[in-house]
């Protein structure tokens, strides 16, 4: 069955990323003990003790075996720097990042598909109106805007909003919406551009010809009968944009000084906190694979041409 096969392939990908991260970090040049020593957080003796305690002095393959059996038992190890349980750290950080990513993703899908549809509009003779041209240009600009910059603008805008907000729930909403909107600018605009080209390309397709033969107008209209055909490739893209959200949350969380997975990953990589980096990267791969499978599944439900067998 293709679903099971897809699942198995996904698990292999996650394993490959986890393994790659494991060996890359240990063969690599970043030594967490050097970071501890240089920051004066440990003496040479303490660093050596720590190395032994973490098992970093043992052969690589033995460490790898421990790591895999730990994952199987749900034990992701402890952070070299804070000594906290990595699983607990991830759970805590995910509490900040997941709402951010979900809101950003929803905003970008809704606005992206909406503006993409507007930008793709043609009149009867197939020429693009002024609104379409302007929307198209805005989408191109938005997709090229660095997340850091849209973040700074929205951070700046959120200050008066926060002081104007009367109640705590409103303030919490602003604190979540602003960084999510910053992320959604770039992601939403690239979804919008993909929507536009997807609608444009479908003009030559047989089902469009059949629709015209049935008296459906030639110009581009946004119609639910078309939406089904457009949504399938867009869902695949929206799944892929989940990957961009990881990079985006790293930047947004740094700009807005929000705690979360992205910021945790940046700090951990810079300091060489092996267990944290490994776990977050494997988690990112897991999420990516998971959303990819869901997107494929949904696409097959929507578009009968994509169903196999």
């Amino acid at each position: 069955m293709s679903f099971l096969r897809r699942l198995l392939e996904g698990l292999i990908v996650v394993w490959a990323v986890a393994t790659l991260a494991f060996f890359a970090l240990r063969i690599g040049r970043v030594d967490p003990m050097a970071a501890l020593l240089s920051q004066g957080l440990a003496t040479g003796q303490q660093a050596a003790d720590m190395r032994r305690l973490l098992g970093l002095d043992r052969p690589l393959l033995a460490q790898y075996a421990d790591y895999l059996s730990g994952i199987a038992r749900g034990d992701l190890g402890r952070s070299i720097f804070s000594g906290q349980d990595v699983a607990g750290m991830i759970a805590e950080a995910a509490g900040y990042t997941v709402p951010l990513a979900v809101v950003a993703w929803l905003l970008s899908v809704i606005f992206g598909i909406g503006f993409g549809a507007v930008a793709s509009r043609r009149d009867e003779r197939g020429t693009r109106g002024r609104i379409g041209r302007i929307t198209g240009a805005l989408l191109a600009i938005g997709a090229a805007t660095p997340v850091a910059w849209s973040g700074l603008i929205l951070l700046w805008a959120s200050v008066p909003l926060l002081s104007a907000a009367a109640t705590e729930p409103v303030r919490a909403a602003v604190r979540l919406l602003m960084p999510a909107a910053a992320l959604a600018v770039t992601v939403g605009c690239s979804i919008g551009r993909a929507t536009e080209s997807s609608i444009r390309q479908s003009r030559g397709e047989p089902f469009r010809l059949a629709m015209q033969a049935h008296g459906f107008p030639r110009g581009i209209r946004f119609d639910w009968r078309l939406l089904r055909a457009y949504l399938a490739p867009l869902l695949a893209l929206a799944g892929m944009e989940a990957a961009f959200l990881l990079g985006g949350t790293m930047i947004t969380e740094v700009v807005f000084a929000r705690p979360g997975l992205g910021r945790m990953l940046v700090d951990a990589i810079l300091r060489g906190d092996y267990p944290v980096v490994q776990a977050v990267l494997a988690l990112a791969a897991l999420g990516y694979v998971f959303f990819g499978i869901i997107a494929d599944f949904a696409a097959a439900v929507l578009d009968p041409r994509l169903r196999d067998g």
């Binding site: 392939e9 996904g10 990908v13 490959a16 990323v17 790659l20 991260a21 890359a24 970090l25 063969i27 690599g28 040049r29 970043v30 892929m240 990957a243 961009f244 990881l246 990079g247 990953l265 990589i269 060489g272 980096v277 990267l281 990112a284 791969a285 990516y288 694979v289 990819g292």
Partner: peptide, 16 residues
């Protein structure tokens, strides 16, 4: 099947 950025981060983690 892995986002290019994740691969880049793995490599960056190794290279410093």
């Amino acid at each position: 099947s892995v986002p290019a950025l994740i691969l880049a981060l793995v490599i960056l983690a190794a290279l410093g």
